[in-house]
């Protein structure tokens, strides 16, 4: 078993067009490390030195990981991780 990671349209160039890929890890940070090995370039689109990029929402099952433990959030086989681009903007 593995963890299913759902990939948004804009990042599917890293996954050969796949909408969902498998990865493993004990925490979200581990999982992203594993994703990077399978799909090089993906990590940089998700995290920077400060942690999760603010342009990106990452959900564990149906909860935003910012309300859980961020990159330290534990993940387990059978979980689903969903990545969505944050939708934001404004006049300034």
């Amino acid at each position: 078993m593995a963890i299913e990671v759902r990939i948004p349209t804009i990042l599917r160039s890293y996954t050969g067009g796949a909408k969902a890929v498998d990865a493993t890890g004990a925490t979200l940070a581990d999982l992203i490390g594993d994703l990077e090995e399978r799909h090089p370039g993906l990590r940089e689109r998700l995290v920077d030195d400060a942690g999760l990029r603010r342009f990106v929402n990452v959900y564990l099952n149906d909860e935003d990981v910012r309300f859980l433990g961020g990159l330290g959030t534990p993940v387990a086989d059978g979980d689903t991780v969903t990545v969505l681009p944050a939708v934001a903007g404004g006049a300034r």
Partner: peptide, 24 residues
Amino acid sequence: RMENAERSPTFYRFDSHEQFRVWR
């Protein structure tokens, strides 16, 4: 229609939970 989580005259952001439900 989505909530503007910022409720601001100069900025908008989809509420992350609402966005998750709508995208699903």
